[in-house]
Nucleic acid binder design. Sequence first.
DNA 1: ATTTGTATTGCAATCGATTGCATAAATTTT
DNA 2: AAAATTTATGCAATCGATTGCAATACAAAT
Lengths: 343, 343
Amino acid sequence: MEKEITIYDIAKILGLSPATVSRALNDHPAININTKTSIVTKASELGYRSNTFASNLRKRKTNTLGVIVPRLNSNFMSAVLAGMEEVANEAGYNLIISQSLESVKKEIANARTMFNSMVDGLLASVAYDTDDAGHFESFVAKGIPVIFFDRIIGDARFSGVTIDNVKAGYEVTRHLVGQGCSRILHVTGNLKRNVYAGRMEGYKRAIAEFDLPQDESLILVTDLGQEAGKAAAQYLHTLPARPDGIFLASDVCAVSCIQALKEIGYVVPGDVAVAGFNNDPVSQVIEPNLTTVHYPGDQIGQVAVKTMINHLNGHSSIHPASSIILDSELIIRGSSLRKKKGN
Amino acid sequence: MEKEITIYDIAKILGLSPATVSRALNDHPAININTKTSIVTKASELGYRSNTFASNLRKRKTNTLGVIVPRLNSNFMSAVLAGMEEVANEAGYNLIISQSLESVKKEIANARTMFNSMVDGLLASVAYDTDDAGHFESFVAKGIPVIFFDRIIGDARFSGVTIDNVKAGYEVTRHLVGQGCSRILHVTGNLKRNVYAGRMEGYKRAIAEFDLPQDESLILVTDLGQEAGKAAAQYLHTLPARPDGIFLASDVCAVSCIQALKEIGYVVPGDVAVAGFNNDPVSQVIEPNLTTVHYPGDQIGQVAVKTMINHLNGHSSIHPASSIILDSELIIRGSSLRKKKGN
DNA sequence: ATTTGTATTGCAATCGATTGCATAAATTTT
DNA sequence: AAAATTTATGCAATCGATTGCAATACAAAT
């Protein structure tokens, strides 16, 4: 554990002042090119590395972004993170990542940690049950930008990066209708979350537009887990007026639902057409392949971080309230295809 | 952007010295209980937050662990990260995560960044092509612990957390043999990596033990991607002496292989029994369900971080060279089941 | 030769928290 | 009552890098 080289060491060796060394290493224009070269050379020769803490302490900036997600281990989220990491890394920012495990309590704790770590900005996708943005107030108060992604909070003080869930939900439902479905069950998640509320609204719009039954018993609020998928299949089986289509707000849930439906004896899409959401890898493995909505996780991550960094550099003028809406895409596969033509 | 509260502010208000305030906030035993209480109260009243940089600068410790992974967006890796985050968070450590995208060059750059960020310890799973531990030397030199996980480097100066890949590979192969397979194709990844080399060695041992053909044409080195799975199916189809079993070192690859096999017209497991590795979610969706090895990602992550933190706290005495081997488990499913009984 | 300008470099304070050592006050021992 | 402890607090240096404001040197202009 040898001692670290500091700018003082370099200064002493070269007979210069620490100030000059510091400037040279930061490529300050006022330093003579020869001096600069010799300093840089000597620095790398000695294996000098800048002490981030001293630097951060002085500059009051951390070059670190905080990220809070509900869960790390979902296909979608890891795509988001991969996208974030890519952009952040390129711009010289580090990411501190934490997961709330869908618990508001842990989310609050994580936010506090991020706050105390003095992140330059915060990127968050909120937990299932989060009611308000109280735990993000402190960031606002200190002028630290907060950007929500995917699961955003409808609050005028934060911007968000997401897709048009209403439109996507509408398109899925319209597609099912186009395939001849006339009673469509919608399986969704906690409606506090924009993503699920939006998809449901899209569903309802399409239902209304095509004069289909607006039956409350056709909407099932669940946790969208694997069990929920099975339960949805059972539920459908018990309904007197049997639905002939299901739109589930998550692929993982949709897949287990299809499995359960097949077990009960239904034919997909013959008896029941099924559509999911997310374009998870499992959607291309289940038989029949699952109709779904491609959800650009990596793009969401990239855009969120890009927006954040631009904002930190003062290069942008995003209104706090503005949201960035990325394109999603309906992907039609076997699980809903009953007709050869049309959509 | 109001100004931050510092211990000096608190000291002034309470008529004490910054030293006392600092000690009180760190629960130093020499501080009077009443003094301590009043300081803590006032601090939270003012919304004081400790400046990590000043603290780190003085303490020469960052409470941050660096993590380098090949890719963030795989099911296995996100499980690992989730496990890591859980343990780290609980112990008050932050994680800085970066991905090499399977590129040695990026891995080297990431290592340098981590080094310059002065992480207290480094956790790494190396890229496909990484040949040596050169870029981790600097950590060793500075006495910063490095722990590899999953894809470890066989170097006496680093410890690692992984599973017994040889044993797992052996068990998979033995199982296939037990199901009546007599020509088993093994599809693997870059053999520089212990995980693939180990699985292959296990495969070879079983092959030798049961006197099956040790044909080099039965070993296929690929990148284990989806395309590789399809290619493997095609390859099998072209072999004059048709294999009746395939052991692929990754589920994702195995699943696309099964799909391609079925497309060509093979019956799984009737014509060809298939086994994968990782227990990825897709293994339970493909039909027939895929026989695989459960790979405890979250445990690997948890253990790696626990080991690291114990080491940092001086609580442990892991020899640098020692490795921690976690249990894996053969999970038998339809894709390899030809007989009703036995394995 | 004097003034003005320009290019480089240094001085010294600053960013907050920590900690070894010293001091002061309160308590106990002799 | 004086001495020895114990308890509680303060002093001041330290951790490295940054930066506004001089200061110096040398070239150009008058």
